[in-house]
Amino acid sequence: MERSILQRVQCCGGGIVLHPAHRRKAESGAHRSWEFSAHHGIADSVDNPGLRVEHAGLLYLLRLAFLPCGSLMSLILRNVRKSYREPDGGVLPVLDVEHFELATGEQAVLLGESGGGKTTLLNVISGISTADEGEIIVAGTNVAKLPEPSRDRFRAEKIGFVFQTFHLLPAFTALENVQLGMSFSGRADKNYAKELLDRVGLSHRLHHRPGAMSVGEQQRVSVARALANRPALMLADEPTASVDRANQDVILDLLQKACSENQVSLLLVTHSPDVASRFSRVEQLSNFNAAVRS
């Protein structure tokens, strides 16, 4: 019965996010009581106090179990596999993720070495690349099933991207770079773009081009740009790899704060344990990416 409920809870999109350790215990039967797993798993994993179920009883958990799948999750990956064809005709598996979840508003870091499939994973989640198989559910939508134009639209509306090398367009000012992201989702709002830049402390640099800004400022612009479309999920690919330690702290603070304030889930990939240490949820990519383990 407990196991059945847990499965149903997980099925509802993992309406409750369990720390992998807890999930493994639950699945192996180590937690005989669903209250226990619920209490600890949820309390440990969900940062959003509104979603805590410490005070919820059985009734609440049951209600969760019957909610549509993914309604409380920003991201769910199920059996996602991707491989590349090598020049010699061989196949190189890059991703093999059985299950991964990220709750709404949750912030998690994926720690992995170079070549571990971190960037590929983010590309697959955002719909830039397609997986060979599996389900990629972002904010309730299975991205894997969307045709390319819809994926583009979806990416514009639901996903914010912060890149390692910022990827700001040099011909555009800070304000225009932020507005550019809005243009593709059809939500051009100059005032909101200004507000975002103000929030990242760049109100005095609105009309400066990236070339005239420091790397730290550039990355702040890219954070503002990523938030421009009020995304459900923020993907950050080694966002501090190109900046010094002082800027690293500033950018990570900014990113975490901005995501918290805007109720945006954050999935950050990095190879740096130092960066990972700032997050309460840290996943070793090798733990759930079978392709890397093999």
């Binding site: 583009d152 639209r153 990416r155 996903i159 550019l180 593709f184 479309n229």
Partner: peptide, 16 residues
């Protein structure tokens, strides 16, 4: 190529 890829990553469609 990079500029176009950035725009695509930001949600620009191929037609765009």
């Amino acid at each position: 190529k990079k500029e176009i890829a950035i725009m695509r990553a930001l949600g620009a469609r191929r037609q765009t």
